[in-house]
Amino acid sequence: MSDRPVAEMSFEDALRELEEVVGKLERGEVPLDESIALYERGAKLRKRCEAKLQEAEEKVAKLTLDGDGTPTGTEPLDAG
């Protein structure tokens, strides 16, 4: 079990660790007290994954460039 704070994990890492946690618990290869801790960790990882999946907001912007081609800001994209 990794001690890395779940809040810092990317979606991919959180998902991978969640899979590991479930696998371990299903195989029944951990002592009882440890399995409770694992379950708690799994629940946190699940929340993290769900949170990342909720961030499915589309935000499209076009960069505005100055005469030298240096970005100056953004504006909504009118892709037609």
């Binding site: 499915a56 499209v60 912007a61 076009k62 960069l63 460039l65 970005p71 994209l77 892709a79």
Partner: peptide, 26 residues
């Protein structure tokens, strides 16, 4: 290019799969 089918196709496909923040550099 900020215009045309290419950026439209990309945004469409992203929206279908997993909407994300997109920055277009024209």
């Amino acid at each position: 290019s900020a215009q045309g089918a290419v950026i439209r196709d990309i945004l469409h496909r992203l929206r279908d799969r997993f909407p994300r923040k997109v920055l277009v550099w024209p």
